[in-house]
Design a protein around this nucleic acid. Structure first.
Lengths: 352, 352
DNA sequence: ATATATTGCACAAACGTTTGTGCAATATAA
DNA sequence: TTATATTGCACAAACGTTTGTGCAATATAT
């Protein structure tokens, strides 16, 4: 069929998708006229109603859709946001990503998702990748440890905001939970329930976030005039393995803790595994609080007390902020989102 | 400083990023020479070593990085894959996405992630969005019910592959679990344990996948000469609510099932919630098998028997297939990935 | 009638690449 | 010495947009 030949010919470079040029040829009008009409600038450029109509009609008929790549090149704006997370399989980041994508799409933005896999080398590579793709802005949950590669970005005036994790050594803004408060509340709760030996299993200490959570743990002790045993603070990665191993080490101490505070959901899962393996009974033999809630925590027996982060809100606020920055509406302010301590049945009352 | 002025001037359109043009000006050579050198085509185009060296040196100094948007426009290839899932917060899709991104990045591809939120209208909008962004290929877990919008895509010769869910009414290839086998195995196991009243809580029946899983359930009955009560098959969405509600309905039947087979992880969670709420004891009062494994299932008491899908492999294979299709190496073959029945403690042995 | 405004459009440059072609200058051959 | 190869590069078109400018043709004013 003739039509197929036509499609085949055009398809060599553009898969047969209609372009402004195509419409302009078909209708014998200039490309600029077509562009202006399809961008709703007909009035502004005094284009006759007759022309407007035939162009709109034809564009609809052949199913014209703008080439966002070409638009991006010409405008130096791609309507694209780079989202980098250390592990998209972690529900915390998955939920955040969902809300980021949803909010971004409302504003015609799309998300390029990259996963650094908690590896700073990949993080650097992916950062360059995203820059090459000319994203209009970046939302990043960094691996931590070094932020020089991010400082380069802001020097190039590319909008960047951190989520969850951040660096206070730079002025790069961030949206995160109130990590201090979260751990303070949880620790205070444990102390109020009579615990004085509380194990704290940490993530990568190169993160401010970890230091803040640790500070909450410390200050809750101080405010209650409780000494801190340094050997109860342990662990250095956000992983199930760390949760598992650190729990075993804590249990082997001369005076093992009566409670454990796990610094994120992966660590918490590792703790649960270890407890399971050693056939310990929660909470009578060991109490547990996990930083990060998870649907299944309420179904475990006993159910597990958790510090719930509002990852939906963190994601949404990050998008709003980055969009404002992109549009030069205002500079981004760092924000701390409150956490909620969800009391369940994993903390034993030693005072009762 | 002079340098800053320079950056500011250039930054108006390109945030101060160096371009081929910039290098060409700085070094008084033509743009084409620079392009060819930086693409490793110096030999091929007989460019003198002297020129090659100064260009490479200067490019490194000013930190040249190619503009992938411009490259994409010129080559009609964006090194971008559109990934559409119905819910990135579902661990099944999150894990799949992680593996897709990882594998794609190896081949210099990046992922544009969109979430249809199980909504076919959003699915259609996002599909157009991805087309406008000129993705080189699409990996989609469709909402289901209608695939006309996808058929349009393949007519435009844009590589497309379904994952998890699919349509047999079209010839669009897919990578999915062996859904029939998964449910057959689980049902057979339940029957072998003496269950003859097995509730099946389904997801959206507009999906072939649901029909296949249902078929596995049916044929296992037939092969064991067991009759099927139609009122034991219930539910129509992949959601926790469906799992919760359907469980309650099943329990209110005159002859309630002695076991439930939940068709995905969200439904399974809803079943667990309902069981929890009604203080039922698994497995003595009700047995349970969930299609989809989850780390927490092994920590519940009792632990829950599950049909494990290999979402990592599904993701990886989908990328490999779509890349082959993009490079015209070969047409994509639909594949079914085996599932694994993980026996735990949630199935009561009525024969013991 | 001539001078000025308005209407409706076409043309061309630019965004940053890649790639086909042409053309000097030098080197080799006859 | 003249004809032919080879070397090394520049030029220009194209990808699909947007946007500033120019220029006819018509309409209005004097």
């Amino acid at each position: 069929m003739l039509w197929e030949v036509c499609v085949t010919l055009r398809s060599q470079s553009n898969k047969g998708m209609p372009t402004l040029k195509q419409i302009s040829k078909d209708l014998n009008v200039s490309i600029s006229i077509v562009s202006r009409i399809l961008n709703g600038k007909a009035k502004e450029f005094r284009i006759s109603n007759a022309t407007v109509e035939i162009v709109l009609k034809h564009a609809k008929e052949i199913g014209y859709a703008p080439n966002l790549i070409a638009k991006g090149l010409q405008a130096s704006q791609t309507f694209t946001i780079g989202l980098m997370v250390p592990n998209i399989a972690n529900p915390f980041f998955a939920i955040m990503a969902k809300n980021i994508e949803k909010r971004a799409f409302k504003s015609k933005y799309s998300i390029i998702l990259v996963d650094s896999n908690e590896n700073i080398e990949i993080e650097k590579q992916q950062l360059n990748n995203l820059l090459g793709r000319k994203v209009d802005g970046l939302i990043v949950a960094p691996v931590g440890g070094n932020c020089q590669h991010f400082i380069k970005i802001v020097k190039q005036k590319i909008p960047l905001i951190f989520v969850d994790r951040y660096f206070t050594e730079s002025t790069i803004p961030y949206i995160t939970s109130n990590n201090y408060q979260g751990c303070y509340d949880a620790t205070k709760h444990l102390i109020e329930m009579g615990h004085s030996h509380i194990g704290l299993i940490c993530g990568n200490n190169a993160n401010e976030l970890v230091q803040e959570r640790t500070r909450g743990y410390h200050e809750a002790h101080q405010d209650n005039a409780l000494p801190i045993s340094p050997n109860l603070t342990i662990g250095n990665t956000f992983s199930t393995e760390n949760g598992f191993d650190s729990t075993q080490k804590l249990l082997q101490l001369d005076t093992p803790p009566t409670a454990i505070l796990a610094m994120n959901n992966l660590i918490g899962f590792g703790v649960l595994q270890a407890i399971n393996e050693h056939n310990l009974v929660i909470p009578s033999q060991l109490s547990l609080v996990i930083f990060d809630d998870h649907p299944y925590l309420s179904l475990l027996s006993p159910s597990i007390t958790a510090i719930k982060q509002n990852s939906e809100k963190i994601g949404e606020m990050a998008v709003k902020a980055i969009l404002k920055e992109i549009n030069n509406e205002c500079d981004i302010q760092s924000k701390q989102i409150p956490t909620t301590l969800i009391l369940r049945d994993s903390v034993f009352n030693l005072k009762a």
